[in-house]
Design a protein around this nucleic acid. Structure first.
Length: 862
RNA sequence: GGGUGGAUGGCGGAAUGGUAGACGCUACGGACUUAAAAUCCGUUGGCCGCAAGGCCGUGAGGGUUCGACUCCCUCUCCGCCCACCA
């Protein structure tokens, strides 16, 4: 009797898979259908793998393995998104070169990932910090530059004083730095920007083609933030100046009672009247000093200051005051608005506070107007002269036409999306491959392709300077160079690219990772793209997934890729949470009953109890589960199976150490079915009921035919549809049936194949025990017969008015409605309900339900 | 405030118009054992009942339907994302 020892069999098969090269993807699919299945590659942190990582990796591995066995040629690679701040911050603290820590982290991550037995083609491994890789990241940047999509700008940007670097709009959350949480300040700095706004419309439109989660599509739509409306020009009274405003409600123009400009608006200085100058300047300066965080926190109370100037409403000639208010964002629309307090809640609040008039210009379609707050819905125009009575939608159109005709307005579409701040004043990133020529070129000169990669030099100190220059600026020998065009003295660009650069195109490099002539081969790109299935965390919904779509579209326009979208189907894994046990004082004690046993016992004396909650895993809550320990205790297959068994893939769910034992027991039961030395379970223990202590004879191949076919069907469909938890329950039921009834060789072979994507090591070992040739991983996936995949016995529920009163058990076959009806009527339990009852109709769902709808069911009392 | 998911036994969850609670965990009872562990068998939503059986039950309330966890309306609570975007 061989024991089930994951510790022995798992490394054994991992070694065999690697040595035999069975998971190596050929250069091309060679006439077969391709399947490109990709994980969001990880940032290899020093903390090691989190149990959340393997959830997605296991899912893709299961599908990759099944697809491979179904005859597809599968591209399933893995790599490392290795530039980033943690390694750099560690370097600042210790002086250890980030390349060194990164290499260590990659090695640790790789060991952990490999210990789970994923079927990656490791020969295609990518590391974004490898010069052979980032050479091409820089090359793509130069293509963007040549197309005018990368440009230098001196604009106020979000700057994190703690990380001492500029940030992209997408990296700021509620006014704070995404990474460290510090309040972000505005800083005017020279920046490299990418013109992502030029692609706003296409990034929005093409979302419709994608099989992505609705929430992610919604986030991208929201982030792009398209609004249709109009730009309207107001003359400034007593000046030869005009102020343009953007509005989505041109129909409310009659209701504009003031104009508001952002404090940063360029006209503020020009129009402010002398008597207001001091107050306005003070207000604008204060707004400048406020961080975004403060500016939004104070958002509840509107503030502003009157400029003393007036604007003339083009539609009725009324003069309305111009205010400055910091609830107007400088970078959206025109940085100025026409305020309509009657129909915009923010303007309403401002008007109330400043005692400005509120003029309703629309009424609800039905009911009375109540003006305790702004009426923001669509309605019917009032107080709007000749336009009275128009619906909001019609009025919008008419007003835009009118404005266009008069030359004081035009239709306009605005986007919330802003250009991507692409430079970082940090060390551990790809150098931006340009030089600043001090000679006749006099400006930015791209490094020619022959000069790539612009290698990241070693530095003596990694500390960001905080002055807007990266640590690279301190290496004079590196900074001082010659202009590649005119040969004059030149300085290298010292900013580096953001974390997101490398991940913008890695899926392309996987199709051709060793190419040193081009980032990828044209033919190979045509063959393998797009990525058929992409799996990773939802936290990248607007960062990585938007940036890489943008790059992909640029590459498409350059003729370098032939699909307009990179990732056709996307799924996110749900977050893995954990129990945390906390005492009255708020001290955390661990993540499961065993872990907190001692604490519990100690508290028992005082009568105090630990409260448990489901929360995100974090060190401070002492509820972080270490994958290494899980594998050590239970084995990789149990870990894989448990991660999939926990619940719906896309939902968050808590880790429960008690439940993991259940799937482990399942593997033990599987093992015993195969292990010839082990007596069949029922006879292992002699009992009075079954005295024979003998091996149960194997049943005929047909004995479990139906359950076998049904299991094939269920497992296949459920894996295909990401229902891994119920794919496992189907296998559990099959194993329970085989344990009870005995298993034919066909059953064992089928079980082994079906289980192999989920628990590959155990399956390989069982396959070997069956005496089959090596590698169940290469076995063809079984097909099922639809007719055989139904139960042998039909159970038809017979209902009276929708309530089940009896179940008829019949042999599978074609039964007519009349036959079923006759049997149901004859059934005594049903008959007693039908006595004296008037049957109005019957509903028959073949093979499932037979329902008598009766007017006056007999009252059955016992 | 906007978006997007979710709420089902003691617990994790199954069932997307057709027998609610599959599968797993826990607990209890039994077998085996000197004993324990492991393993196996049985029970395990609630209430009434010796039983047969009946009634109630999927966050709350209403609706559609022969039939609703599932569809529609109203509401409550929770997660995640975004948020003064005119």
């Amino acid at each position: 009797m061989a024991r089930y020892e994951p510790k022995t069999i798992e490394p054994k098969w991992q070694k065999r898979w690697l040595e035999s090269g069975i998971f190596k993807t050929p250069l091309t699919p060679g006439g077969k259908s391709k399947f490109y299945i990709l994980d969001m590659f990880p940032y290899p942190s020093a903390a090691g793998l989190h149990v959340g990582h393997p959830e997605g990796y296991t899912a893709t591995d299961i599908i990759a393995r099944m697809k491979r066995m179904q005859g597809h040629v599968v591209l399933h690679p893995m790599g490392w998104d290795a530039f980033g701040l943690p390694a750099e911050n560690y370097a600042i603290a210790t002086g250890v070169h980030p390349a060194q820590t990164t290499a260590q982290s990659i090695a640790a991550f790789k060991r952990q990932i490999q210990s789970l037995g994923f079927s990656y083609d490791w020969e295609r491994e990518i590391d974004t910090t490898n010069p052979n890789y980032y050479k091409w990241t820089q090359w793509i940047f130069l293509q963007l530059f040549k197309k005018g999509l990368a440009y230098e700008a001196h604009v106020p940007i979000n700057f994190c004083p703690s990380c001492r670097t500029g940030l992209a709009n997408e990296e700021v959350h509620q006014g704070g730095c995404e990474r460290c949480g510090s309040a972000v300040i505005k800083k005017n700095m020279r920046q490299w920007m990418l013109r992502i706004t030029a692609y706003a419309e296409r990034l929005l439109q093409d979302l419709e083609r994608l099989d992505w989660p609705e929430s992610t599509l919604a986030m991208q739509r929201h982030w792009i933030g398209r609004s249709e409306g109009a730009e309207i020009e107001f003359r400034v009274a007593r000046f030869e100046l005009r102020v343009s405003v953007f509005t989505t409600r041109p129909d409310t123009l009659f209701g504009a009672t003031y104009l508001a400009l952002a404090p940063e608006h360029p006209l503020v200085d020009q129009i402010t009247s002398p008597s207001k100058k001091t107050a306005v300047e003070a207000y604008c300066q204060e707004a400048q000093l406020k961080t975004d965080m403060e500016r939004t926190q104070v958002a509840k109370e509107k503030t502003g200051v009157f400029t003393g100037a007036g604007a003339i409403n083009p539609v009725n000639g009324e003069t309305i005051p111009i205010w400055v208010a910091d609830y107007i964002l400088p970078h959206y629309g025109t940085g100025a608005i026409m305020a309509v307090p009657g129909h915009d809640q923010r303007d309403y609040e401002f008007a109330k506070k400043m005692n400005l008039p509120i003029k309703p210009v629309a009424r609800p379609l039905e009911g009375e107007a109540i003006f305790e707050r702004a009426f923001e819905e669509d309605g019917i125009a009032i107080n709007s002269g000749e336009f009275d009575g128009l619906t909001t939608a019609d009025f919008k159109k008419r007003m835009v036409e009118w404005l266009s005709k008069k030359g004081v307005g035009r239709p306009r579409v605005s986007y919330k999306l802003r250009d991507w701040v692409f430079s970082r004043q940090r060390y551990w990133g790809e150098p931006i491959p340009v030089v600043h020529c001090q000679g006749s070129c006099g400006g930015v000169v791209p490094v020619p392709e022959s000069g790539l990669p612009v290698a990241l030099p070693d530095v003596s100190r990694y500390q960001p300077t905080g002055t807007g220059d990266s640590p690279l600026s301190l290496i004079e020998s590196w900074v001082k160079t010659k202009c590649p065009v005119c040969g004059s003295a030149a300085e290298r660009e010292t900013n580096t690219m953001p974390q997101w650069a490398g991940s913008c195109w890695y899926y392309l490099r996987f199709v051709d990772p060793y190419n040193d002539q081009a980032p990828w081969d044209q033919e190979l790109q045509k063959i393998w793209l797009p990525v058929d299935l992409y799996v990773g965390g939802a936290e990248h919904a607007v960062l990585h997934l938007l940036y890489s779509r943008f790059w992909h579209k640029v590459l498409f326009d350059l003729g370098l890729v032939s699909t307009i979208e990179p990732f056709m189907k996307l799924r996110h894994q749900g977050m893995i949470l954990a129990y945390s046990y906390q005492d009255k004082l708020g001290v955390y004690h661990g993540y499961d009953e065993i872990d907190v046993k001692d604490s519990k016992a100690a508290l028992e004396a005082t009568g105090e109890e630990l409260s448990s909650r489901i929360e995100k895993m974090s060190k401070s809550k002492k509820n972080v589960v270490n994958p290494d320990e899980v594998i050590k205790q239970w084995g990789a297959d149990t870990m894989r199976l448990y991660e999939m068994f926990m619940g719906e893939f896309e939902l968050s769910k808590p880790w429960d150490m008690r439940s993991i034992e259940g799937v482990h027991r399942f593997l033990l039961r599987v093992w015993r079915l195969f292990d010839k030395q082990t007596p069949s379970l029922e006879f292992q223990v002699p009992s009075s009921k079954s005295p024979a202590n003998t091996q149960r004879p194997a049943p005929s191949a047909d004995a479990n035919l139906r359950v076998r076919h049904r299991t094939i069907k269920l497992v296949t469909e459920r894996i295909e549809n990401f229902k891994f938890n119920t794919a496992i329950t189907a296998l559990m039921e099959y194993v329970n049936a085989l344990t009870a009834k005995g298993a034919a060789r066909e059953d064992l072979a089928t079980l082994c194949i079906l289980l192999s994507p989920l628990a590959p090591h155990t399956s390989e070992e069982c396959w070997e025990m069956l005496g089959e040739a090596p590698f169940v991983s290469l076995a063809p996936w079984p097909v099922y017969d639809e007719e055989l995949a139904v139960e042998e016995k039909l159970a038809i529920a017979v209902q009276i008015n929708g309530r089940v009163r009896e179940t008829l058990t019949l042999n599978a076959g074609s039964w007519t409605q009349d036959q079923i009806a006759a049997m149901a009527r004859e059934n005594p339990k049903i008959a007693k309900y039908l006595e004296n009852a008037k049957i109005q109709r019957v509903v028959y769902v073949p093979g499932k339900i037979f329902n008598f709808v009766v007017a006056n069911p007999a009252v059955v009392s016992e």
